[in-house]
């Protein structure tokens, strides 16, 4: 899968108007995301980054108007919520995720190893630290075959070495013809070119 094979954008947004809680967060917002791109959404707290990502993921069905076209057959969304059942072990959590996403189970151990959870596979997640629980959620990145990743603050609660590895897997996905949209308040520690899109807070009149 090369970038040239996908000339059309994976995600196309045209004239999007986003409203949350009676406030207009974005108006006439247009965006095209092509294969091979890593896009960083920038904006202050409350500017609508999360709302935009949720809308792009298709989780928000109301509260927006405008054209939204997703050409990716599957996508991975990583949000603020833990995405992990604390009563289950990391292995059980990921096994369920693989079954739901129809992914092979073969990569499960490698994914847990990649997020440095070797030795913790079979310990219920409520006995793990916040950072480790976050890593269980992030292990989905190593399992995913989805061409489009939407990551909301993926670096939260992750140590510096972990952030570097995460940046590498993000860059690798884009290099393999995928596209990654992420929000973060820290720069991506990677040499991969990052397209920055700023979401300015709209003045309300």
């Amino acid at each position: 899968m090369t970038a040239a094979a996908h000339a059309e954008p994976l995600l196309k947004v045209h004239g999007l108007e986003l409203e949350r809680g009676g406030r207009v967060l974005l108006s006439d917002f247009s965006l095209e995301i092509y294969p091979g791109e890593v896009m960083m959404l920038e904006g202050e707290n409350g500017s609508g980054k999360t709302s935009l990502l949720r809308t792009l993921a298709g989780l928000a069905r109301y509260g927006y108007s405008g054209g939204l076209q997703c050409n990716a057959d599957s996508l991975l969304y990583l949000g603020h919520k833990a995405g992990v059942k604390t009563l289950l072990t990391p292995r059980e959590n990921l096994r369920w995720y693989c079954s739901v996403q129809n992914l092979p189970l073969a990569g499960l151990d490698a994914a847990l190893q990649s997020v440095e959870l070797t030795g913790y596979e079979d310990i219920p997640c409520h006995n793990l630290s916040a950072g480790q629980q976050r890593r269980v959620n992030l292990a989905r990145l190593y399992l995913s075959e989805a061409p489009l990743w939407l990551l909301d603050e993926p670096f939260t609660a992750i140590d510096r070495a972990g952030v570097k590895r995460l940046a590498d897997v993000i860059a690798a996905r884009a290099a393999a013809g995928g596209a990654v949209v992420l929000t973060s308040h820290q720069p991506l520690p990677s040499d991969y070119p990052v397209r920055r899109v700023s979401i300015a807070r709209q003045e309300r009149s």
Binding site: Y77, G79, G83, W96, V100, N102
Partner: peptide
């Protein structure tokens, strides 16, 4: 819903 696994289920291809 509280831990966000419902979002993953909603986004699943099935």
């Amino acid at each position: 819903f509280d831990d966000g696994t419902l979002e993953q289920l909603v986004l699943a291809p099935q």
